[in-house]
């Protein structure tokens, strides 16, 4: 089958790949670019494990086509830590033990990052609603919510 050439920006770097028109952005990230941090949970937009930031907004990469990445800016979990230094959210997730098996964690971190970009002081309820599209079967969510709130607090204090 004829492949399409896609040229895109991922975590600030120019990337190019060839893909089938039916391929999802998630598959292209994982299979063509070896960015396997984004996970496939459900593949139907219910679980949020594949969350990436696409043109500044958090989306499920399983619900976008790889060809849609042409000319766009995408941030994935691989771009979250800076030069080996963890992002405040990542640090707080460790401190609060906000993960167990870790499959949902990249998606939850990306969704949380996008929340804190738009809302520096979210309430507990706002965090819960924002993350309602990210399923976690281990933690029971409380630790995740607390980690996000704590990260928001620290980010406000350090700026």
């Amino acid at each position: 089958m004829k492949k399409v050439h896609v040229s895109t920006t991922i975590n600030g770097d120019n990337k190019e790949f060839l893909c089938d028109t039916r391929e999802t952005l998630l598959d292209a990230l994982r299979d063509h670019l070896a960015l396997t941090g984004s996970k496939e949970g459900c593949g139907t937009g219910d679980c949020g494990a594949c969350s990436v930031i696409f043109e500044g907004e958090v989306i499920c990469s399983c619900l976008a086509l790889a060809v849609e990445a042409e000319g766009k800016n995408i941030d994935t979990i691989e771009g979250m830590a800076n030069d080996g230094k963890l992002h405040i959210l990542q640090k707080k997730f460790l401190e609060h033990a906000a993960l167990q098996c870790g499959i949902c964690t990249p998606g939850i971190l990306m969704a949380s990052k996008s929340l804190l970009q738009q809302n520096k002081e979210p309430t507990k309820e706002e965090v819960r609603f924002w993350l309602a599209g990210n399923l976690c079967r281990c933690t029971g969510y409380d630790k995740i919510i607390n980690a996000v709130l704590d990260a928001a607090k620290e980010m406000r204090e350090t700026v």
Partner: peptide
């Protein structure tokens, strides 16, 4: 209509 991720699309 759906979660944050869905709302954005």
């Amino acid at each position: 209509i759906g979660s944050t991720q869905i709302q954005n699309r």
